[in-house]
Design a protein around this nucleic acid. Structure first.
Lengths: 302, 302
DNA sequence: TGGAGTGATATCTCTAAGCGTATGGAGCGC
DNA sequence: GCGCTCCATACGCTTAGAGATATCACTCCA
């Protein structure tokens, strides 16, 4: 790539003159006097090395060299104008692309309203939404394969990633409707001591898993996890078939399944945090835009 | 078409930096110090209104806005460089297009050697060659549908068109071989007084026609034109079949036809001029190039 | 903790571009 | 022949841009 030889203002003058074929008219279209236009053209011709216009009294027309240069000049000018406009659109965040990872349990609470308000405000933005559990989200953020993460129990501090709590929610017991404890409006954790448990694998989100486990331990028992499932949807299905019970964030109440009951637990102290995560140094203007949308638009309550 | 907002030198710096992603390296590739490069980029970012690079210690990368602008900048730069190079090629006359009209009788003398030497010198030039009689050539030159004319008996002066004599040639008598006069090495025009004549229509080239007619008148008779043909080739064919005799420029000797004899005429005073014609104000550099080739390369003798 | 590396900033200089006004000069038509 | 149109030229002014050097701020690493 060599250094540019022809300045754009002169090319602009050239294109306009090529359209008008009249120095006076072209000059007024350019908003300048006629002599400066003559100079511009002359300078351009000096740089090209050949005449671009043939001036005959009465009429003026392009030389072959000028005809050859014209399309390149026009393309450069229009291309740059369009590119600049597009870059400004992207820079302002009116258009662009945002890749969002989200935990499946948020598909029914945080995500819908967030997407609704964001789409409303930035209809031209491409949103790439993909479901991911917490740990892969953190990796994907670092690898720049997603720009925004919606996850549970974020790490407290991180040098590269920023976190902000979207909501905190209590836990509920997930029981088969036929389970005797399901008859109560609220259950105590220790009532589940003898039940087999269905949970997400610890690797999917260690902090959440540990939080659930410590709920049980605080109630005086270690949960007997007889079954794992990577999605809450599946957990509920397994509970329905009577394979066990579970403790889960309140969000999953939204999974309405006949034969599954959700019950408040008591005491109701422990809460799980849902957070949004992003790269602190991300230059994408859509990231702050999304965070703003999240701030102003509280998620649907379960 | 609006006035350009982004100067090319800054876009050049932008593209190079986008390739290097390192201010120091990019600056040295540009042949400048690092601080001026920082300034260039900063100015460009100011004009765009948004950051184009995100500077993090250790690595620097494009923002979405920068990624959006990059292809436009690159296209503008390369497009202009190519367009400029092409315009210079055309301006110098190394490449381009030249439309040439020629009289049929020159297809065997002037034209072949001219095309040979011109093609040799300017192999990249497109030559559009078309056969035209004299009068249409002059019209085509004025209408700019041809750039060069090769014709007979050009008008003496013209405000718009230039003429230069390529060669002058004597007239020859065209006779059937069986004609008694064909036995002589040279014929006197008055020997043809009683023969029917085959000639080109006067409209094709009035000066040439008039010249031939006046040859006869000078010999004391008015030619009895019994047959017209628009090409010399056809004239010869008609002469062969015995339809008449003709007087023609010596060039047509090249039309070798059994049964047709060409004989020098005496006295051998009258000559016909072959000339090249062009628009005086033509800006195509190939026109002077062709004239130069014509000057340096005398046509084949018949 | 100090030095290397990297980029930003401050300041200065100089040139070339860009524009305006005034003027010159060639064609063209009345 | 005179005036008009149209483009070129001359001259002066102003400013943006591009460059250099010197220096600062930050990070990272030994």
């Amino acid at each position: 790539m060599e250094r540019p030889e022809l300045p754009l203002p002169q090319l602009h003058a050239f294109v306009v003159l090529a359209e008008e074929l009249h120095f006076g008219h072209a000059a007024s279209r350019l908003g300048i006097a006629q002599p400066p236009l003559s100079q511009q053209i002359r300078r351009l011709e000096d740089k090209v090395g050949y005449a671009l216009f043939s001036r005959e009294p009465g009429r003026i027309c392009l030389t072959p060299a000028g005809r050859q240069l014209l399309p390149a000049a026009r393309h450069a000018l229009t291309g740059l104008a369009e590119g600049l406009a597009a870059a400004r659109e992207v820079g302002s965040g009116r258009v662009g692309r945002l890749r969002i990872g989200f935990a499946a349990s948020l598909a029914l609470t945080v995500l819908p309203s967030l997407l609704r308000t964001f789409r409303e405000r930035f209809p031209a933005v491409d949103l790439d939404i993909q479901e991911m559990t917490t740990t892969p989200q953190l990796a994907a953020l670092r690898e720049r394969t997603i720009d925004i993460g919606l996850l549970r129990e974020p790490p407290a501090h991180d040098t590269d990633l920023g976190f902000e709590t979207v909501l905190t929610e209590p836990f509920v017991a997930v029981l088969p409707s036929s389970h005797p404890v399901a008859a109560q409006r609220a259950v105590r954790v220790e009532q589940l001591a003898d039940c087999p448990f269905v949970l997400l694998p610890r690797a999917v989100g260690p902090p959440l898993y540990d939080q659930i486990a410590s709920l049980c331990i605080a109630a005086g028992f270690t949960p007997q996890v007889t079954q794992h499932a990577v999605e809450w949807q599946t957990v509920c299905a397994l509970v329905e078939t009577g394979l066990g019970v579970s403790l889960a964030p309140e969000s999953i109440r939204r999974i309405r399944l006949k034969g599954v009951a959700f019950r408040r637990i008591e005491p109701n102290a422990a809460r799980t945090r849902v957070a949004v995560a992003w790269r602190k140094n991300d230059s994408n203007p859509l990231v702050p835009h999304l965070l703003a949308a999240l701030d102003q638009d509280p998620p649907d309550r379960p």
